[in-house]
Computed example of a mutant assay.
Amino acid sequence: MEKKKVVIGMSGGVDSSVAAYLLKQAGYDVIGVTMQIWQKEEPDTVSENGGCCGLSAVDDARRVAQMLEIPYYVMNFRREFDEKVIQYFMREYLSGRTPNPCIACNRYVKWESLLERSMQIGADYIATGHYARVAKLPNGRYAIQRSVTAAKDQTYALYNLTQEQLSRTLMPVGDYEKSRIREIADEIGLTVAQKPDSMEICFVPDQDYARFIRENSGCEIPEGNFVTTDGTVIGRHRGITHYTVGQRKGLNLSMGRPVFVVEIRPETNEVVIGDSADVFTDRLICSDLNFMSVPDIDQELSVVAKIRYNHSGTRAHVRRLDKDLAEVIFEEPVRAVTPGQAVVFYDGDYVAGGGTILRNS
């Protein structure tokens, strides 16, 4: 029987490297691919970028592919990454929202674009080194399932993958603890066995988002007023791209007590400041809905909802308001519901779906 062909995205890190090894051991015809997404050609600039954007990623991934004796290619996804991730990132911040570029990258670059090109070269599947699993449920639908290692679980950032994408996706490291993945890498002699994980946003290596947006958007980002929840002006802010809901540090306000960003109002260029209690809410409105383990909701859905990657989750009820609008009501208040971030719904170990936070309702 002919081997199934799988294209695996290789970042040069230990997870995708071991994923490639596991797939080969399972009998797949494995092809390694690194997605070229950096925007500048200058070697010094490119090599400074970390994670999946740097030249070191290509060097490390190529060495791993040679050691595993699998074909390896670098594919240019520069245009797709700019359109779907960088431009979205800047547009959201300029609109007073806080985006999650990794979610956009997963959906539109690591899956949509890579899958399309992989199918063109005859692949049956694509694969990644994410800590998550793909399951086909009794109702016939595909869903993302939590990984074995809870501390590294990456299901939150994968909630908006489509059924077609999931049906053609393999995630072999989701069945292992992180420590075991490093052990496997050591056992087979991979040079990346102890390579640190990349945590930052890869295209903003110094993490100065406001500077990046100012230099790359072509937009002036004017100063404006800090105001209290009742509209009283209490100071001047540096530009709305410097702030996010729930932020306490870097406000430079002498209020005699801790204060926090409660809301960002791009239409008036105001940043609203309040007390800790003002940052809590028990409901939100979300849009851009994607359902995974369930085809849709026509009645209230009971879930555990996460409002950010490192949120442990809170029990909640989801009800549809419109074709692409839902309300999430939490059983206890949650802190810093942030427009632009994802809210992801879990049914046990499975992702039921999710959406993009619009506002507190």
Rank of each mutant, 00 (worst) to 15 (best):
K84L: 08
E42V: 11
K24T: 06
R180F: 10
V6C: 01
N360S: 14
Q145A: 12
P222L: 02
I31Q: 12
V18T: 10
E215C: 00
F77A: 15
T281R: 13
V33G: 00
S312N: 13
F345S: 06
P138K: 11
Q154D: 10
S361G: 15
R248L: 03
V192W: 00
F226G: 01
F81W: 08
V328D: 03
V33E: 04
S293Q: 03
N106G: 00
Y346F: 15
I297N: 08
A336R: 00
Y159A: 11
E112F: 09
Q247D: 04
R319W: 14
V204C: 09
V192I: 12
T268F: 05
Q299G: 11
R141P: 02
T162S: 15
K3W: 00
A26T: 04
Y108C: 00
C219K: 15
N225K: 15
N106W: 02
S16T: 10
L289H: 04
P172I: 03
S147A: 15
T228S: 12
R257L: 01
G231Y: 06
M67H: 14
D347L: 13
S147E: 05
K24L: 01
V262I: 14
L22C: 07
M171A: 14
Y28C: 06
I264E: 02
K323P: 02
G51I: 07
I86P: 06
E263Q: 13
V294E: 05
T98G: 01
E92A: 13
C286Q: 12
V271K: 07
V30K: 01
V46L: 15
F89S: 04
I188C: 03
S118D: 09
A20P: 04
R214P: 00
G189V: 09
N139V: 05
D197C: 07
S47F: 11
W111V: 05
G218Q: 11
V337T: 08
M171E: 12
Y350T: 11
C202K: 05
I273Y: 02
A61C: 06
E92C: 10
R359A: 14
Y72S: 03
L289M: 13
Q247A: 04
D275Y: 11
I201K: 00
S113W: 14
V337F: 02
L289V: 09
E332Q: 09
I86H: 04
